[in-house]
């Protein structure tokens, strides 16, 4: 039988569970719920491969495949490239200056115990791209 240590669905990564230990690029360890916008920005500055991009939420829709799945459309970076991602409604994104947000914060808090606000159109999320695309 599968381990019964957590009630987290297999589709949700374990690092979003409250109390998970996250290592920043400078080696500092923080709990996932304690992360701040600056932690991501500073880690990306240290990184030789990754850079932070701003991804603005343009649309949030339900999925045709499952009631627990949402399709979030982002406008990414200065070129405003349109990117859609299909995620579980409880999947948290980090909003600049605000913190963790999801399409269904009640489920996120229930499943992960991660303090979370409602992800809304217009929110600017932290995302990553490669530094050297050329």
């Amino acid at each position: 039988p599968p381990p019964s240590s957590a009630a987290v669905p297999p589709s949700l990564p374990p690092y979003f569970i409250k109390g998970s230990i996250i290592q920043l690029a400078d080696g500092e360890l923080k709990r996932v719920e304690d992360l701040k916008t600056e932690d991501f920005i500073q880690s990306a500055e240290i990184s030789s491969e990754l850079k932070i991009d701003s991804s603005t939420v343009e649309r949030i829709e339900g999925s045709h495949t499952s009631p627990n799945v949402a399709v979030v459309q982002f406008s990414v970076g200065e070129h405003r490239a349109q990117v859609s991602v299909e995620v579980m409604v409880e999947y948290p994104f980090f909003v600049f200056g605000q913190g963790w947000s999801s399409c269904c914060p009640d489920r996120t808090t229930q499943l992960l115990e991660l303090p979370c606000t409602k992800l809304s159109v217009g929110d600017v999320c932290i995302s990553l791209t490669l530094k050297n695309l050329r």
Partner: peptide, 25 residues
């Protein structure tokens, strides 16, 4: 061999979605 169980540590970038914009030029 039984490996000691330690607290997992996750890299910061695993928490951030990788949204690579499509390059049109």
């Amino acid at each position: 061999n039984v490996e000691p169980r330690s607290v997992p540590v996750f890299p910061w970038h695993s928490l951030v979605p990788f949204l690579a914009p499509t390059q049109s030029d």
